[in-house]
Design a protein around this nucleic acid. Structure first.
Lengths: 236, 236
DNA sequence: CGGGACCTTGAAACACCTCAAATATGGTGG
DNA sequence: CCACCATATTTGAGGTGTTTCAAGGTCCCG
């Protein structure tokens, strides 16, 4: 099955995943995009489906086409840390690790392009721009992880919530301050930010009370005071 | 000045930084090691010297030869997060980031090999084994960052201390359970683990009281019960 | 309309933080 | 070698933020 069958567009000249959406495709020629598409296998996930499990062999790498994913690590004690939320265009799976030290699950129905790791590596050796994009992506992933370390180490509960909201606003394509969609549950946010679900809930109440946000619907938030939110979020 | 002048060995056939010590040199031929050495510039640091400052241009990448370094990020609010402790053989500086989003300072007198970023990249394009080592190093750095996220998000104070001690025991070459050296201050540990200095001190007291460690000297610890320490440290 | 999952709110407990003081450490000059 | 100083660390008491436990409310879907 060709990956192109997933594309809403019937135009065979355009890649199924546009370069505007995905960092992976940045600066690639049409011919190179086609080569990538040739080795791509589409995977459709329902909400709560697992794309991969912790400690599994890393036979594939992935690119998220649509929907939202969650990356988590669960300890033997049952404690759960959410490591990342993924958005369309995000790349997943480090090609130089033989194992995935995390699980990945779908928050919403999602479509993922899967590449055999070896084929992908061969292609990235062949296409310098692709290799370069991979290096940039690795850099960005590390930067995100370090931002999370800073947030968990230094910020208070309501600041961590602002950190998350700011991140969602930046990374959700098409997100606007008037209607920010939260694709994850309060528990997911809590496990991402190193808090409990109750603390997350109280932090939302506090931010609402301070007129920084308004919660229109459980998963729809309006940013009323973006400046103040960023002030609270950053601290760097 | 040749980097070899730093080597305690007068043997010009052996690299100044041995492959046993440094991941960067893994599987490199003698000729390739020599090429690396040719573009290396030695830097000597005293304790508390800065190797680089946050937001500075990344003109170089580095390899730590001797001594211990600390990687930190300081927010505009003054809050400080220690991102990593570095040991001999550790690589530093992502070649695909144009800026350093952290500062690096010496905990002890240290020697660092500096490489011009562009020359280093040229060489890594030329030597596949070097490129491969870089990819492995990037993977390992990310893995460490994710471990830290888990620790900060999910672990209690004394568990975080165990996490740090276990890490030091693994990464300090030549470290033994009978005499583990702590090259950093309590404040550094606190800022690494997202705690205060007092909490770190009390966590040490608790672990000592429970006969898991013994504090021979401020910076010299004996691990009395490694199994229990790892049990507390891990939780994954 | 009913049931289950998710979310919010309240009260009490706890871990960690803050502030303050005491103690220990390491370096320096006599 | 010792006294002295600045700095780092420990310890104590009290306060705060977060968690825990429990109850009540909301939303969604059949």
């Amino acid at each position: 099955m060709s990956i192109k069958q997933l594309s809403p567009s019937a135009d065979d000249q355009s890649p199924w995943c546009s370069p505007e959406q995905s960092f992976l495709y940045k600066d690639l020629t049409q011919a190179h995009m086609d080569k990538l598409d040739e080795i791509a296998n589409p995977i459709n996930l329902q909400a709560n489906d697992y794309l991969m499990h912790q400690h599994s062999d890393a036979h594939h790498v992935y690119n998220l086409v649509s929907g939202n994913l969650l990356v988590e690590r669960i300890a033997s004690t049952g404690r759960r840390q959410v490591l990342a939320f993924l958005f369309p265009g995000d790349f997943l799976g480090f090609p130089h690790n033989n194992f995935f030290e995390f699980s990945v699950t779908a928050l919403t129905p999602a479509t993922v392009a899967a590449y055999h790791r070896k084929e992908f590596l061969r292609l990235s050796d062949e296409i310098p721009e692709l290799k370069h994009n991979m290096e940039q992506i690795s850099s960005n992933v590390l930067a995100s992880a370090l931002d999370q370390v800073f947030a968990l180490g230094q910020k208070k509960a309501h600041e961590r919530i602002c950190f998350l909201l700011k991140q969602l606003l930046q990374r959700q394509s098409g997100a606007v301050a008037e209607d920010l969609v939260l694709p994850m549950t309060r528990q997911d946010m809590a496990d991402y930010l190193g808090l409990t679900i109750e603390t997350v809930s109280r932090a939302f109440a506090k931010l609402k009370n301070e007129q920084i946000i308004d919660v229109h619907h459980i998963n729809h938030v309006e940013i009323l005071n973006l400046e103040e939110l960023e002030e609270l979020a950053c601290a760097d």
